[in-house]
Nucleic acid binder design. Structure first.
Lengths: 227, 227
DNA sequence: TAATCTGTTTATCGAATGATAAAGGAGGTC
DNA sequence: GACCTCCTTTATCATTCGATAAACAGATTA
């Protein structure tokens, strides 16, 4: 019987605890991203080439392992420099936005990030809402103000819901690339950088114009008021 | 012990088969939309106020019930008139698009549609890809051609990937309203009609301009070519 | 080489799962 | 009112789940 390595690093057993733990976490990320939280610990262990009870030597429960999986995929992924770059008015706004979304897309548009995010939402965890509240306060408001500045509008007042919603729209369109690819199994544009540049350009052409229309019709004919 | 009705129509047992079947399907739609396909038949039965084996009197297996759930939520939901309306050039294009997306949003932006759609994708069913291929061939191409006409461009050639992608973007932004609301549990604009009008307006301001830039720079400086 | 430590496996438990068989019971028919 | 039809329940099975306890085995130390 020739040896059939179940894991890339072959069949060396008795690893250092830290090494084994890392291998489990890496495997768990890939495994739960594929099957969701209902994937069984036995099948995960089989994929790792270890026995199921060994998982419980390293994690007290399945839930503890899942917590670690989320930490691995989502914690410390936000690049603080993105905010600095978005504010750098020496660079044209369009270039700033393209650069930001290229960096951001590189972080979120992958199999594990997209699928685990959706699994978390469907399970009812508050993780998604908390993450997106952070995203909105960190990036959306900032982007809205830079766009206002670009169009000679006052930047101090609170951001309108409409402004935020259209930025949501750009974000959604980009994230949906990941949904299409990693959840629906559909093809996406092969040149992501060019695609992002196109989306940012269309956004910058349309969003300020639509918001401008909104403001000018305010008080006039069909006024809209938030409930 | 006062009677505690588990279902709206109270505790009348021994229903007509057709009536019971419909009650099961309705309950299954709500149940599996909430818990996914791994929701247990016992809990579903408990919600319906019946016993679990009774489900197997009406459906040979859990999978058969799930098939019926999908039929209930997704089949015959497409309105053929939408295509006719999109083509009606007596109406301004913006109005046509707003009208279409208002009707379409009414169909898809609900708890069951959004969540079951995502559960299906995560499970690896080809349902999502097939549905969206239909959507693209039914609506996206049509919309792209109407936009071309509006801007005095030839409508006969094949739709560019870039045109389709920006329409994907509008679609994604609208669908993402459902994701935010029914999967992430976040608030969405209270006035959906106004929100859709805003998104369509921003889209129509930005998309043709971005595509136009693309075409004019074609052959010139940074030509892009699909792999 | 014997003893010890500890990473790993084997064996197993109680609960929950989809599914089946048989008994019960409500409502109509003669 | 006895009988029959068939909708519904009770009882149960084999499997799979997360989790635990005990045995095993490789490596280090004396």
């Amino acid at each position: 019987m020739s040896r059939i390595p179940t894991v890339k690093t072959a069949d060396k057993r008795r690893l250092e605890p830290k090494e084994r733990e890392l291998e489990i976490v890496r495997g768990a990320v890939a495994f739960f991203a594929e099957f969701g939280f209902d994937g069984s610990t036995r099948e995960l262990a089989a994929r790792l080439g270890i026995t199921q009870p060994l998982l419980y030597r390293y994690f007290p429960s399945k839930e503890a392992l899942l917590d670690r999986v989320y930490e691995e995929v989502y914690v410390n992924r936000w690049n603080k420099e993105w905010e600095t770059q978005l504010r750098d008015r020496a660079v044209p706004l369009e270039d700033r936005l393209v650069r930001f979304y290229r960096g951001y897309a590189k972080v979120i548009l992958n199999y594990e990030w997209v699928r685990l995010f959706m699994f978390a939402g469907l399970k009812g965890l508050d993780f998604n809402a908390r993450y997106l509240a952070f995203l909105r306060s960190s990036a959306f408001d900032l982007i809205a103000r830079e766009i206002r500045l670009e169009h000679g509008m006052p930047t101090d007042g609170p951001i309108l819901n409409e402004e935020a919603e259209l930025i949501w729209g750009l974000h959604a369109a980009i994230f949906y690339l990941g949904v299409r690819q990693f959840i629906y199994g559909m093809p996406v544009p092969d040149d992501l950088d060019a695609d992002l540049a196109l989306r940012v350009r269309a956004f910058l052409r349309g969003m300020p114009a639509a918001v401008g229309d909104l403001i000018h019709q305010e008080g006039a004919g069909q006024a809209r008021r938030a409930g």
